[in-house]
């Protein structure tokens, strides 16, 4: 049996800090087929960015970071690969779009020059003129008007939406097979957000890339993702096909996220009811199920939720919760769904 296009196995990322060891990602397992979209959701600090940076091997330059587990991209293992091998893939076979395009672009180089640079690292033989044409072509394809003129502009001269488009052009310039978008629309206003998401979807179809869409907005996931991973406190607590996850969510935290999802048919005032309580400390994770301090059902399993860490089962739709499956189904149908 051949491996999926991307397979992440037991990925664990720790940071040694002055305050202690930050357990940013713990034994994470997921996979993604070529051309498909995986949504990673979770609130701030749940380890989404750390996961994606691990795939790109960007923790390697941090001396305090420890990454273990396996990351297979197209049958190549990346955690144990050499720095040069990973670098050859970065920006080539796998590329990334960041949250805040203004700070993610160099202020002293023109947008065009930065795209040209990205192209030429992976096409060393190509001369400047050809690379320039390629960059302008990419700017045009992401919908930037007058691309030849904007080529010479700096990031600060672009509007937020145009900047993110330019960032996308830079990420796609080498035809990556995997595109990681880390909250690509958070810094943008709502109408622009929709445009950028449409753009990513169109380009994905055109280029046939697999996409990891990181967000804390379940609406985005519902729109784009084939599969979804829900993270809490550095761990995956639910994982499955998007359809299943939205129709039969299994984890109490996922229920909370669904409850906080903005919906058009609801009054603005009670649209957003974020999950009560605050995210756990990654230096001192709560014992047992990390979600137990915020979980309304924690007491239903005797002491298990407080002492025993639930494991994410295998299978297509997996969940890490001690509640028996039938109980969860009943709770969702009778108590949760009617209020969504």
């Amino acid at each position: 049996m051949s491996r999926p296009f991307l397979e992440v196995k037991d990925l664990t990322v720790r940071f040694e800090t002055d305050d202690g060891i930050v357990q940013a990602v713990t034994e994470s397992n997921f996979s993604l087929e070529a051309g498909k979209t995986l949504g990673i959701v979770g609130e701030s600090g749940s380890g989404k960015s750390v996961t994606s940076l691990a795939i790109l091997g960007l923790h390697r330059t941090r001396s305090n970071a420890k990454v273990s587990g396996e990351i297979w991209l197209d049958d190549q293992e990346l955690v144990t690969a050499t720095n040069d091998d990973v670098r050859a893939l970065r920006g080539g076979k796998m590329a990334m779009i960041f949250q805040d395009p203004l700070s993610a672009m160099h202020p002293y180089f023109t947008v065009g020059a930065q795209i040209v640079e990205a192209y030429r690292v992976h096409h060393p033989g190509v001369n400047k003129k050809v690379a320039r044409e390629r960059a302008i072509d990419m700017l045009a394809r992401v919908g930037i008007p007058q691309p030849a003129r904007r080529f010479n502009d700096y990031a600060h001269q672009f509007s937020g939406g145009m900047r993110q488009r330019a960032m996308i052009a830079m990420a796609l310039v080498n035809d990556p097979k995997l595109l990681i978008a880390d909250e690509p629309t958070t810094a943008l206003d709502v109408t622009v957000q929709a445009q950028i998401l449409d753009l990513i979807r169109d380009l994905q179809e055109e280029f046939g890339s697999a996409v990891i869409m990181i967000t804390h907005d379940l609406g985005v996931v519902a729109e784009l993702a084939d599969d979804v991973v829900v993270m809490y406190g550095g761990k995956i607590i639910e994982r499955g096909p998007a359809v299943d996850l939205f129709q039969r969510p299994q984890h109490p935290y996922t229920w909370g996220l669904l409850g906080s999802m903005p919906r058009l048919d609801r009054d603005v005032r009670d649209r957003l009811t974020p999950v009560k309580g605050s995210p756990p400390s990654l230096i001192n994770l709560p014992s047992g199920c990390a979600f137990h301090p915020r979980c309304p059902y924690a007491g239903r399993n005797g002491d298990r939720s407080f002492t025993e860490t639930p494991v994410l089962g295998g299978g297509v739709h997996a969940v890490a919760c001690h509640l028996p499956a039938e109980e969860r189904t009943r709770l969702f149908q009778e108590e949760v769904a009617p209020n969504l």
């Binding site: 960007l58 330059t61 670098r87 970065r90």
Partner: peptide
């Protein structure tokens, strides 16, 4: 520590 340095690395540029 700037984001654009991370971007530069993400592009596959050498150190």
């Amino acid at each position: 520590g700037e984001d654009y340095i991370r971007t530069a690395r993400a592009k596959g540029l050498g150190e």
